[in-house]
Design a binder for these strands. Structure first.
Lengths: 191, 191
DNA sequence: ACCTATCTATACCGGTGTGTATACTTGCGG
DNA sequence: CCGCAAGTATACACACCGGTATAGATAGGT
């Protein structure tokens, strides 16, 4: 049984494989990276990779889940540190700005994965949908907490701004997209 | 010399190939479609495909350029039919709404292509950048024409809303994303 | 009548990619 | 001390994919 099918802690080799897969999948695309290369780069045999993860599909899912977990923790930290719900909303865009400048020249890993694996039955679509639903809930919660009118519609608007900032940063030629999205949200939110 | 390297009219077989490639690339992804399949589906030999287009890369570029041309014509038509610059801006989101409901369950073909072919030197990145730059210019022109303050910043905000609506429609679970983006723009633009 | 462009039919080459099989080693816990 | 989990090393099966080669058919223009 592979190590991902129940949340056991990763073996050292499996951790290295997951780390390498994370950077390679993101930088070169999922289809552009073979299991052979991942194994070599992690200093591991292909057999070890398959013993730990079972298949490429499972490794892809593990890669996305790991990235998702980190991203959620990063945002949550920034939001809870904010002095109130309104500042919390703006903090999501500031977090995005920081995240992008740190390690995000290639857009959203979820969106990219869905682009490469179009079959809607493929597990990556579930992971991606969960991530977007999570962010939408974050906005809903904050908007409700701030007692704005029409919270659901407002949360959708904030989500659209967020996703738009990600795309326009990587291919729209807007290196300040997150900051612009933040200011747009600031203009949309009553004081 | 291939038929795309100078704008000669396409031969009947080449046109069929381009049509088939258009739907298949979009629906199954570029990496998920082989030249063999495209040829077969178009009722054509692989040799014909290579005689007309030269390579898969060139066929991909032709596919994106064709789609881009149609999209620009569609938007331009709606914008020029609008009674003024403010209505023109809103018309871009209404056009997106129509376009998405008609044939767009899988997001932006440019974004998807860039996700599949990460090398920034690959020609698809140039095509994608041109398309986004064009849309940004559309917004700049309209915003300037409407004599709003800070036109460049406002145009960027409108572009972010637009791209966000595309992503959240296909992955974010917002079937009304374009309409929401339109209403958001409506709220942002002084009357 | 001939030439050229277009297209069919089919076979093939080299490379790559996922996944499996086999045999051996190392280290730790009961 | 033994057994099991984790890992190395290597080879291989099988499929697919981009691209090429060869040979022939068809039709329109000069």
């Amino acid at each position: 049984m592979s190590v991902v099918e129940q949340g056991r802690p990763l073996t050292p080799a499996a951790q290295r494989v997951l780390d390498v897969a994370g950077t390679l999948f993101y930088e070169r695309g999922i289809g552009g990276v073979g299991m052979e290369l991942i194994a070599a780069e992690a200093g591991v045999t292909k057999k070890t990779v398959y013993d730990r993860f079972g298949s490429k599909e499972a490794l892809i899912v593990a890669y996305l889940r790991t990235r998702d977990r980190r991203w959620r923790a990063f945002v949550t930290e920034r939001v809870t540190a904010a002095p109130g719900p309104r500042a919390g909303i703006l903090a999501t865009y500031e977090a995005l700005d920081t995240w992008q400048r740190r390690h995000n020249a290639r857009g959203c890993s979820m969106v990219n994965a869905c682009a490469e694996l179009p079959d809607p039955e493929h597990p990556v679509h579930r992971v991606a949908a969960e991530e977007k639903a999570w962010l939408r809930d974050v906005y809903r919660r904050l908007v409700t907490e701030a007692r704005y009118d029409d919270p659901e519609s407002l949360a959708d608007r904030l989500l659209i701004l967020h996703e738009g900032a990600i795309v326009t940063y990587s291919i729209g030629g807007l290196p300040d997209s997150a900051r612009i999205a933040r200011d747009t949200a600031d203009a949309l939110l009553p004081r």
